[in-house]
Amino acid sequence: MAQKPCCTPTRDGPPNVISDSIKPAVRTDLHVDAITIAAGKGLVGTNSPRIPNDGESPLRPTKIAAFRIGTTTVTNAQFKAFVDATGFVTEAEKFGWSFVFWAQVPNQTGPTHAVLDADWWRHMDGANWRDINGPDTMAQAWHPDHPVVQVSWNDAKAYCDWVGGRLPSEAEWEHAARGGQGDVPFPWGNAEPNDTDQTPCNIWQGHFPETNTARDGYVTTAPAQGFAPNAFGLYNLVGNVWEWTSDAYTIKSLKKDVRARLAQMKGYKLSKGGSFLCHRSYCERYRIAARSGSSPDSATTHHGFRVVWPA
């Protein structure tokens, strides 16, 4: 299993492309909570990067065409409706395993393989979107109103196709996350989250990766409508789960070490927003400008997605 940046592991080998993706008829009768973002000028990035080698800077203007975006990430209940209607099989199910955070590995599980240089991630046979932490864990870990996880980029795209939508671009995602506030680091503004009294999102509190005090109320995922929405009415844009985007993971850099890392990440897809595993001491990526990349066939317990549609 290959090492990768940030707190998301990725599968070994070249990214897999699903060759037998279903092409079901687009559903038009589904009720989806979404808002329309008007066309206008947006911002991408920051002039105050905290992880410069991720390509967070510079802050730059961009033109935004109008689009509709889900107020939340796709939930377990919504993804289940897709699977029930189409018989879709996720990549984690096809591989027969996926990545699980060490603290969520079931007590009855025997020894597990750890990811190189990130041994809090474990290779778990039988982990998938239903049994999130491994076999027979659905009853404890699966909640219909929580974000669906253990879904790859390819899985997310298949769902988006089914509902007549697509994954957001990085520019669309950042514009939506800023909520009309301009150059702010967080969807709620400038106030920094902490481990005690400022918990506006679902991230790690305590000492990563050993102890999570869960001061925000959640050890793992929160409901998709957990915490207050931003000014646009969108929930959990940072923290909770990473969100796949439509963009490739690229960085403009002249640094040799960054270019070497990118060469090993050819074909990777960009994710935004951070997750419940982010903490300032290790993965300070619960910010609008933060970025991460992973192979399109990878899935974890803290990775989901939301959908956009034409306005």
Score class of each variant (00 low, 15 high):
residue 168 P to C: 05
residue 10 T to N: 07
residue 228 A to K: 15
residue 70 G to A: 01
residue 46 T to W: 04
residue 98 S to P: 07
residue 64 I to Q: 13
residue 38 A to V: 07
residue 2 A to T: 14
residue 189 G to V: 13
residue 95 F to P: 00
residue 245 T to E: 03
residue 250 T to H: 14
residue 17 V to S: 09
residue 102 W to H: 09
residue 302 H to F: 00
residue 34 A to K: 11
residue 290 A to Y: 10
residue 203 I to H: 07
residue 236 N to S: 14
residue 209 P to L: 00
residue 95 F to K: 04
residue 290 A to K: 12
residue 19 S to E: 14
residue 204 W to R: 10
residue 82 F to S: 04
residue 166 R to K: 15
residue 213 T to C: 03
residue 298 S to M: 05
residue 11 R to F: 03
residue 67 F to T: 13
residue 71 T to P: 01
residue 117 D to T: 09
residue 90 T to G: 09
residue 163 V to Q: 11
residue 218 Y to E: 01
residue 245 T to V: 05
residue 286 Y to T: 06
residue 265 M to P: 08
residue 27 R to H: 01
residue 59 L to I: 12
residue 181 Q to W: 11
residue 255 K to E: 13
residue 27 R to Q: 04
residue 184 V to M: 03
residue 199 T to F: 12
residue 256 K to H: 12
residue 121 W to C: 06
residue 83 V to A: 08
residue 197 D to P: 10
residue 255 K to Q: 14
residue 285 R to G: 10
residue 238 V to P: 07
residue 179 G to Q: 15
residue 9 P to C: 06
residue 55 G to D: 08
residue 193 P to K: 13
residue 149 V to G: 01
residue 97 W to D: 07
residue 88 F to C: 03
residue 59 L to D: 11
residue 244 W to R: 02
residue 61 P to R: 12
residue 278 C to D: 11
residue 222 A to S: 15
residue 167 L to D: 07
residue 248 A to E: 15
residue 149 V to C: 01
residue 171 A to E: 10
residue 226 G to Y: 02
residue 107 N to K: 15
residue 310 P to T: 15
residue 227 F to W: 06
residue 226 G to M: 02
residue 243 E to N: 14
residue 236 N to D: 14
residue 309 W to N: 15
residue 172 E to M: 15
residue 11 R to S: 02
residue 215 R to I: 05
residue 172 E to T: 14
residue 194 N to I: 09
residue 61 P to M: 08
residue 218 Y to V: 04
residue 51 I to W: 08
residue 125 D to K: 15
residue 5 P to R: 15
residue 70 G to I: 01
residue 14 P to R: 08
residue 282 Y to S: 15
residue 257 D to Q: 10
residue 301 T to L: 00
residue 89 V to Q: 07
residue 198 Q to W: 13
residue 215 R to C: 01
residue 113 H to T: 05
residue 36 T to L: 09
residue 14 P to M: 04
residue 210 E to I: 00
residue 280 R to M: 10
residue 76 N to A: 04
residue 305 F to L: 02
residue 118 A to N: 05
residue 215 R to T: 08
residue 301 T to A: 00
residue 223 P to A: 03
residue 153 W to H: 07
residue 181 Q to V: 11
residue 133 N to K: 01
residue 135 P to K: 07
residue 189 G to W: 06
residue 186 F to W: 10
residue 293 G to E: 09
residue 48 S to E: 12
residue 45 G to C: 04
residue 45 G to M: 03
residue 78 Q to T: 02
residue 35 I to G: 03
